[in-house]
Amino acid sequence: MRESKLWVYHLIAGAVILVLLGIHMFIMHLDAILYSLGVGSQNPIDSGVVFARSKELFFMITYIILLGTALYHGLYGFKNILMELTLAQKSEKFISGFLTLCGVLLFAYGTFAAVFVFMK
């Protein structure tokens, strides 16, 4: 019961990432194409552009949501893979705990960075 619920969230997180990361990827990697069409900036990872973007509330919030969902989706997927190896129960508990901890710490760190630069 619980596992299938987590799996449903995994899928939903995937859908959220699709939308947010879709935007992210278009801005970052199809930038030249977008720029030649007259939208976006010429160099999206130029520090000036990056820091200007960090100051926008929209980008800060989407970054935090993206961070959370991608961490959940990725780490849960990784856990799912490890759980299929028929490991000892102890190792499985340890892995679950460890990955959850990693997720929480990384989320805290990333959120801190986003908020910190936004406020500065």
């Binding site: 520090s47 990056v50 960090s54 961070l67 760190y109 990333g110 801190f112 960075a113 910190f116 630069v117």
Partner: peptide
């Protein structure tokens, strides 16, 4: 995450 969070140390 680590690379982009490096922005907290400035431009």
């Amino acid at each position: 995450i680590f690379a982009t969070s490096s922005r907290i140390w400035g431009p």
